[in-house]
Design a protein around this nucleic acid. Structure first.
Lengths: 203, 203, 203, 203
DNA sequence: AATGAATGAGTCTTCATTCAT
DNA sequence: AATGAATGAAGACTCATTCAT
């Protein structure tokens, strides 16, 4: 067995279990039984249950980050909108493939304790910042209308999270890639143009 | 001591503790110590920890529901938009006043177990349905442009949840009522008109 | 309500519950709920659960004792054998009518604690003594052959207890009185004459 | 420490405690303290208190069964009576040596709950059946006189149980083996020939 | 590196008993 | 005499973590 393989093995099984049952409902016994290693072996690779979980969350954050590309406006680049859609599609695709991870993000890591909450908040703050930057850039180049970019970014983040949330329970699709792209486009469409009929002014 | 007061007392303290620390981090010992009642007294009023928690969630859902009024378009009524803003303001105000409850909603009840998840999902589905109905109504009266109302409703729900989420950590404001109204308006503004500059068309 | 009636009411309900479920499986809550009195009222009449139980056992012993008549050999009396049968019949009839009591005797009071065991043992010792006396009398008048009267009495007591034990689970009969008399006769028959064929000598 | 030794250690201490104090009066704390193992260790070997107890009862039943040999009448065998005495002597000797076990049988397992009662009843039914079979055999070969073999067996079983019961409190003898043999012979003597003087007929 | 038996602090829950009304 | 809300000691059981092998 390769060095590091044991570690990966435990991480993988733990991810599935945490995703399926949640943090508190998953015991070390469950994990070592699933990964087929001895109890003691677990503690050779991880300081404790909490750290293992943190590591999974860190890995998840890392992978999500790696999906997100800063939007550019260099001539010859894809349109900003397409770049945003691509970002969304990559994140959605990643999390669709490993729903455990998505579940850990939304169910396992929420409300665990102050520390986990802070970590989660920090991550979302980071994403929020990235969205806000995009919006500011949009304003600079005259695509985005004047608005509270912070709230706008919050709305966008919320929309993305909510759609991901629904993915958790949606049945597997025949052409997931196509679905994802449609979802991403729909979100962006509503977020950019709103839902109001053109030419109608709401008092 | 009034009849029912003990019950209320326990519910109140439990709400704060669950809100602050989460379900698993709060023991019966914590609750009875905080409420200053004997261990056995707790079980006089609640079958077990789980039921107490469920009751808190039920109360919360009830209160939120009571904030939401179906949007009407009768002549003489406030504009649909104002009615929506009012709904938002009422919900925000309610949850701002009792942040524990908000915290229970977002941190305590998430990922607790299958049953709690289902309850939560059902509640959100209900809210989603209400939003979708509003959008359909909007389409009927020609205010809402053709779009996937389900995704649009999802985006709206996500936006609301995300804003509420940020409320949890935002410091207490000097004029909360005013803040809330601004938040509600900003969300509705972005959701209805989008963030794109008027006249600009995104490819 | 007559004075003492409350007491009797509680005793009665407790007897049924103890008989049905046993001492440990019956809670004060069960008893007061069944007797339809308040918790506090219970402690007005009985020092504690243990004492209530003891009282029931005492009552039972008293009633059993009252069934047992010392065997006499005065001319004109019924035959000793008939007197013994009558004793048995009376005890059997008493306990058949109130199976709870029988159940308390055999299941509730056994192995409760040292004190209860002692009480039980004392009662059985008393019955054993009575049987032994009868045997001694029998020897005196030449009906009983030389044998270890203590062991003989033990055998008799065991036989009686065992038959009573089976009564606990036997279905209610159409003519219980007749059954009881037959049982009593059968026991006495075997105990007196044994099971060996007349004239056969066992090495 | 040998494998399985811990288990045996816990069983042994539990047997003594259950025997001395009874099931309900013995807590897991008592057992682990007596066996000098940690609280958790207990649950490594036994699912719960109830199961531990059941195991003890099962072991006891197994051992008792192994004492009992079916009576044979092959030429050259010991006499049926001697075989019966041998059976009794073996059972008595077994239970004399481990009075805790005997106590568990008579005090601990009685009236515990429906399940335990059924188990107990089943065991006694088995023993009763064996005795009845012996009696039927005796009738076949002409040693046993016509009588209700079921009641006769019940009497025999009751006698045996009662004698065992007294063993529980009897002081340790100088020559227990001899005592046991005498007891067994006395029981059998009374059971077979009865207590009535030869030639005397009871009306 | 790996094992898994052992640990014990901590959890929820029950229930006999008390006491102010 | 009667009530029933309140008590808190005590019980069974879980599980993350350790450590001798």
């Amino acid at each position: 067995m390769q060095p590091g393989e044991r570690r990966a093995q435990i991480l993988e099984h733990a991810a599935r279990l945490f995703g399926d049952r949640g943090y508190h409902e998953t015991s070390i016994s469950d994990i070592v039984a699933s990964a087929d290693v001895a109890r003691g072996t677990f503690y050779l690779y991880f300081a404790n249950k909490r750290r293992l979980f943190e590591e999974l969350v860190d890995i998840l954050f890392l992978r999500i980050r790696s999906c997100i590309q800063t939007v550019t406006t260099d001539p010859g680049d894809r349109s900003p909108r397409d770049q945003l859609v691509d970002n969304l599609v990559r994140v959605f695709a990643l999390l669709c493939e490993e729903k455990h991870m998505l579940s850990i993000l939304f169910r396992g890591a929420v409300g665990l304790d102050r520390e986990a909450d802070d970590k989660l908040r920090a991550f979302y703050a980071e994403v929020l910042g990235a969205i806000e930057n995009s919006l500011t850039l949009g304003r600079t180049i005259g695509i985005v209308r004047p608005c509270d970019t912070h709230i706008a970014a919050t709305v966008a983040l919320g929309a993305i999270k909510e759609v991901l949330q629904t993915l958790l329970t949606s049945p597997p699709s025949r052409d997931p890639e196509q679905d994802i792209r449609e979802y991403a486009n729909a979100i962006l469409d509503i977020f950019t143009r709103g839902v109001v009929m053109d030419g109608v002014s709401i008092p």
